[in-house]
Amino acid sequence: MTDSTSYHYRADRRRDLARATSDIRRGIGYWRLAIELANDDLRQRYRRTAFGALWISVSYLVFAVTIALIGSQMTGVELYGFMVYVAVGYLAWNFINASVTDGCSVFLNTENWISGLRLPFSLFVFQSIARELITFGYGAMVAVLIILATGHELTLTAFAALPALLILLINAVWAHLFFGVLVTRYRDINQIIQTAMRVLFFLTPLIWTPEQAGGLREWLWWNPFTYFIDIFRAPIVQGIIPIDSWIVCLVFTGVFGLATITLFAHFRRRIAFWF
């Protein structure tokens, strides 16, 4: 709408890819608006509550502490160490989970804008990711408090969690575009994904460690979330950089990216007709 005052569109499938990448570029150009819209979303969600978005922190804190208490009672692992493990893993999981589940409804929720204005589809993806990042921030504050309170010792390696977060971010973009396109067309996929993510929460080492998994351990490595959690959590909790997990994550990001761009390029112009 703003980047140019002239608009030309010729029906030509060969241009789909260029149009898809330009959509993403233009969406990034709207980052300021994406953040404003994300803030509005959260303001709306916590409207008329006294604590507002701080409820994110509260609910996260209650969950991490409760799980740590139950886990250490049940398995006899040391409480403070386990609390840090759960807190950091759950922080990453919340972001991953939101980028998949919110990704499913990213276009359905913004139909009102898509059918009224010529804006890049990716703007709504970045709006959703901005909202998830803000949510992540509210959780991260608590995670820092837990690390300080438990006296967990960090090493410089902990900074390796930052590039891991970047990988999670890139995959969040893919997840939104991929599932957003699929779900807008095939609504059943939304139900499948929501159910799958609830189950995967228990099948990913978050509230238990791989050592406690017993026979399940062999199967754990088929779950891609295991690796994404690992590259973020291990530098903070164990002070190591898990090279194997990094390799899996990088390959996954590349393949997922290619699949996503192909899908998005192919179906982008049809999204507006699927509501």
């Binding site: 709408m1 703003t2 005052t5 002239s6 608009y7 030309h8 569109y9 010729r10 029906a11 898509i114 059918s115 009224g116 204005l117 010529r118 112009r269 507006a272 007709f273």
Partner: peptide, 17 residues
């Protein structure tokens, strides 16, 4: 307005809509 794009054909709009 550029919200829908054509299956076939060609559209050209000079000016901000």
């Amino acid at each position: 307005a550029g919200i829908y794009t054509p299956d076939e054909g060609d559209i050209r709009v000079n000016g901000q809509t």
